[in-house]
């Protein structure tokens, strides 16, 4: 099972693949979906982004230095938390820091176990392993962070009366937010748990597919995928809980009051800017 000979895709093959784009664009034109422009932009971006990443990864693989790997992980984390913040409904103030810490912490814990203990990659910074695995962890952590904070925000607005009743009885912010917190964590965990339920039944996960095409034994590929599924669940959970507790710190004041931020929504930033000018 030493074969790593698989069919390569030439430049001409890539051009032929544009037939798929033509089909999609024709479909959009025929049904007047008005998506032609978006499909074109999407195609260009797919080419540009993936070719750039491919190039960067190739450089990374030949350089094989831990500094470059750490830099790549840092960039991935920053982009992920930026994306998670972008998906928030109300004010975004203070959320970037919280999500960066959450994603970085979850990434560090899960990578340590997968790279250091389960795969025992030596040296640990071999890009072939750490980069794709970190990509999966950070991508899922990003979704977890985005979901949990968004849901916590709307739950606190929805449950305002209940939360304030508990605060008025002497509860801490954390105690009063208990139900909202649990509901948000469940929301963040659900997609991961659902995918654990159906994995392999409907479609094969991308990484497993890739390994099989590259000539890996399916039973080996499956073992990788099992580790990946479990590590994603843990990474999502850890990110969600750190983000949620961090977000409690901005949705409540230190005096166990609901923050005006929940009332003002997007205008919160404007309010903060004005109060500073006084």
């Amino acid at each position: 099972m030493e074969t790593s000979s698989y069919i390569h895709i030439s430049n001409l093959d890539l051009v032929i693949a544009l037939v798929f784009v033509a089909i999609t664009i024709l479909l959009s034109y025929w049904q007047r979906l008005g998506l032609e422009r978006d499909i074109a932009i999407g195609t260009v971006r797919t080419f540009l982004q993936l070719l750039t990443v491919g190039f960067v990864l190739q450089q990374l693989f030949t350089a094989t230095h831990w500094v470059w790997v750490i830099l790549a992980l840092a960039i991935m984390t920053t982009v992920a938390s930026h994306n998670a913040v972008k998906r928030q409904a109300g004010s975004k103030q203070g959320l970037f820091m919280i999500m960066t810490v959450a994603i970085a912490a979850a990434g560090a814990i899960t990578l340590l176990l997968v790279i250091g203990v389960i795969l025992r990659v030596r040296p640990w910074y071999q890009p072939q392993y750490i980069i794709p695995i970190a990509g999966m962890i950070i991508g899922n952590a990003m979704n977890g962070a985005a979901l949990v904070v968004n849901r916590l925000h709307s739950e606190l607005i929805l449950r305002r009366n209940e939360v304030e009743a508990m605060l008025a009885l002497g509860a801490t912010a954390k105690q009063a937010a208990g139900e909202a917190l649990r509901e948000s964590l469940r929301t963040a965990m659900m997609p991961t748990i659902n995918s654990m339920m159906t994995v392999g039944l409907v479609q094969l996960p991308g990484m497993m597919t890739g390994q099989i095409i590259s000539g890996a034994n399916p039973l080996d590929a499956v073992r990788y995928q099992i580790v990946v599924m479990l590590m994603i669940a843990a990474a999502t959970g850890v990110t969600a809980i750190i983000s949620a507790f961090g977000a409690l710190g901005v949705f409540f004041t230190p005096n166990h009051q609901l923050s005006l931020r929940l009332e003002l929504g997007k205008h919160w930033d404007e309010y903060i800017a004005k109060s500073k000018n006084l």
Binding site: N161, E162, E164, A165, A168, L169, G170, A171, E179, H256
Partner: peptide, 20 residues
Amino acid sequence: NVRKLRRRVGMVSQTPALLP
């Protein structure tokens, strides 16, 4: 301490809030 204050000063809101 805010929480001690709130124990000494109770509050009932307009619409009754039900805790689980």
